[in-house]
């Protein structure tokens, strides 16, 4: 099963997004968060992200959702540090909508490419039309 990692500056944001996403897929076990620094300070830490990706991986790959700025840079660095040992990619998607779709797709057993593709479709979700 594909894993999902939520990267945020804020542990509260990551926890809230996890709760929201798991409402749609209660039994999904592949979701991890990497948010804030070790001491709980707001920020992002490539090493924590790398560990979360490794932990989420069952061999089928890991889709990463990241928030602003250094969330993306730190996640990118974390994936580079894995040196290909885990198939991992940052989905180019909004973090809340993307996380919900990624978790649902992963939970129904979709493969890595499909989870990425479905997650990235949330870029075009309209809220007011």
């Amino acid at each position: 099963m594909v894993g999902v990692v939520i990267v945020s500056h804020s542990p509260k944001i990551a926890e809230g997004i996890s709760d929201l996403a798991l409402q749609m897929a209660k039994d999904y076990k592949g979701l991890r968060t990497a948010a804030g620094l070790e001491d709980g300070t707001i920020g992002t830490d490539s090493v924590r992200i790398m560990n979360a990706i490794q932990d989420a991986d069952e061999g089928d790959g890991v889709v990463v959702l990241a928030d602003l700025g250094s969330g993306v840079i730190s996640a990118d660095m974390a994936i580079d540090m894995l040196e290909g040992s885990v198939k991992a990619k940052i989905a180019d998607a909004p973090i809340v909508e993307g996380a919900v779709v990624a978790v649902v797709e992963a939970s129904i057993g979709s493969d890595f490419d499909r989870v990425i593709a479905e997650t990235e479709k949330t870029r075009d979700f309209r809220k007011v039309s």
Binding site: T41, T44, D45, S46, V47, S70, S74
Partner: peptide, 10 residues
């Protein structure tokens, strides 16, 4: 990398 916490870390 693992202690700065912002974009300056990476």
């Amino acid at each position: 990398l693992s202690t700065v916490g912002g974009a300056s870390g990476p």
